[in-house]
Structure formats: structure tokens, C-alpha cells
């Protein structure tokens, strides 16, 4: 049985937006196809092994994110960069998105370092938090699809020339409320503000992540289609809610 190895970075500090839902989705979608997800946690102070197929970094409270930022940019940065260069998937959601870029400057001017896997930088603005339903036209792995989610962030993220957005904002604020961009993608590194969580209602995106991960694991399995009836209905319901609240 093929096994995909996932490393959940800082589950104690960086899981406030139901991040474990994303991991549950990856696990079940492998299991339903006769495959398996092995999940390892890497906490503050732990050494990081660069042999995983997927690295997941979610969102946390400001205080926790600041602690995590220094740990990640210190002892773990080299392993994470080496894994990403080797084609492992890195998925950063919300705070995780901010920390896989160059860094985050808070409203107090304090700087949280990032690991610069993607050319993106985040600055907090004193204006209102960007909160609400989001619909994207995403372009990933040669396919164009709609992605739905919910955003809730104070940081405004600007993309540099070496990275492209995950999608174009159809509804919602996106990275900075101005550019029309949401998220960032470079090779197999994905950053996004979307939770909800991200993967249950976007099963196509979950399968892109799994395909890349299997490729990295050297497995030749093709992912059989799943029924996805509830997933498609939930996706449609979320998109409809976003439309109503427009």
C-alpha cells in the first residue's frame, strides 16, 4: 500500500481555523482509494525531517504565530526549503501563508520572519480585518476551477514577480483587498488565506495536493475518481452564500 507522509507543523499553536479538517480530508481521500496518510507533528523546538511528501502549516493567534515564526525561520528553515526544492508539497493556510513568504510586519511594527519559499510579503494594516466568504477562479496544475472558502485576516499580502496567485478573486477581498489576487503558487508550494476549511469543499484541490505528493513519494498510483456528491453540493452552497452576502 502506498503511503503519503505528511508533516503537520505546529498543530498546537497553528490550528485555530479547523486546520485539522484539511488533514482529515487528505487522509480519507487516500484511504477511500486504498492508500494511506501517515501524519507526524513537528512542534516548537523539534527538529524537522525533510523527507515528508506534504508539509502543512495552518493559522494561529497572533501571539502564537510570533513564537512559531522564529522557530520556523530558525532551526526548521533549511529542511523545509530543501524539501520544497525536492518537489514536496507545502501548503500554508492563513498565518501559514504569511510565514512561507518573506515575513509579516505587524501593526506594532514588529517583524515576524518568514522562510521565503514564495515571493510574497505581508504587512498588517490598521484598517478593518478582511473577513468573509470568498470565491476564486483558480488556475492550478493546468486546470481552471472555482475555489470557495472563508477569509479572516488583518495582514495584506503582496506578491513579487517570482510567484503567481492561486486565483483571481470573484467575490471577497483576497490577499490585500486591492490586487484581485488570492493566494500564491510556486512549483508545489501553495499559500492561501482560505479556510472553511479549504479542502473539504474543494476536493479537486485536495486531489491536486495528493497527486503531487504521490509523485514526490515515487508512487505510480492514479487517483481514482470519488463520488464527491456532498462535496460538490457543499461547494455550491458556499458559493451561493457568498453571492447572497455580496
Amino acid at each position: 500500500m502506498s503511503v503519503v507522509r505528511l508533516c503537520h507543523l505546529y498543530p498546537d499553536e497553528m490550528s485555530i481555523y479547523a486546520d485539522r479538517g484539511n488533514i482529515a480530508v487528505l487522509a480519507r481521500r487516500l484511504e477511500w482509494r486504498g492508500l494511506r496518510l501517515d501524519v507526524t507533528a513537528s512542534e516548537l523546538g523539534d527538529a524537522l525531517d525533510d523527507g515528508h511528501d506534504i508539509y502543512y502549516l495552518g493559522g494561529g493567534q497572533d501571539r502564537d504565530q510570533a513564537i512559531v515564526a522564529h522557530d520556523l525561520a530558525g532551526a526548521k528553515a533549511d529542511a523545509l526549503r530543501s524539501a520544497a526544492a525536492d518537489g514536496a508539497v507545502v501548503l500554508g493556510v492563513c498565518g501559514g501563508f504569511q510565514l512561507i513568504g518573506h515575513g509579516y510586519t505587524g501593526t506594532d511594527g514588529a517583524r515576524m520572519p518568514g522562510v521565503a519559499l514564495i515571493d510574497a510579503d505581508t504587512v498588517a494594516e490598521t484598517g478593518p480585518r478582511l473577513i468573509g466568504d470568498v470565491i476564486l477562479d483558480a488556475d492550478l496544475d493546468g486546470e481552471q476551477r472555482t475555489v470557495v472558502g472563508f477569509e479572516n485576516h488583518a495582514g495584506r499580502t503582496r506578491l513579487g514577480p517570482d510567484v503567481r496567485p492561486l486565483g483571481r478573486v470573484v467575490h471577497g477581498h483576497g490577499n490585500d483587498g486591492r490586487s484581485g489576487h488570492e493566494g500564491a503558487v510556486r512549483d508545489h508550494v501553495i499559500g492561501t488565506y482560505l479556510h472553511g476549511p479549504l479542502l473539504p469543499k474543494n476536493p479537486w484541490l485536495a486531489d491536486v495536493v495528493l497527486r503531487w505528493a504521490l509523485e514526490h513519494a515515487g508512487a505510480s498510483q492514479v487517483l481514482d475518481p470519488l463520488p464527491d456528491d456532498l462535496e460538490v453540493a457543499a461547494h455550491a452552497a458556499a458559493a451561493a452564500r457568498a453571492g447572497v452576502r455580496r
Binding site: 479547523a18 485539522r20 466568504d133 472563508f150 472553511g196 455550491a236 452552497a237
Partner: peptide, 30 residues
């Protein structure tokens, strides 16, 4: 408005005990 929180609930222990399950509401499919 954000229904993410349902993924932070430990519903798993109910699974073996559930005889019938009906879901409803604005976000029934979630």
C-alpha cells in the same frame, strides 16, 4: 458566518453509535 468550526468538533466517537443521521440548515451539506 464561518462554518469551519465544525471540523474542530470531535464528532468521531458518535459514528459507531449513530443509527440515523439527518442534517439540515443553511449549510446542511457542510
Amino acid at each position: 458566518q464561518d462554518v469551519s468550526w465544525i471540523w474542530d468538533v470531535d464528532y468521531e466517537p458518535l459514528v459507531e453509535r449513530i443509527e440515523t443521521l439527518t442534517v439540515t440548515g443553511d449549510r446542511a451539506y457542510d
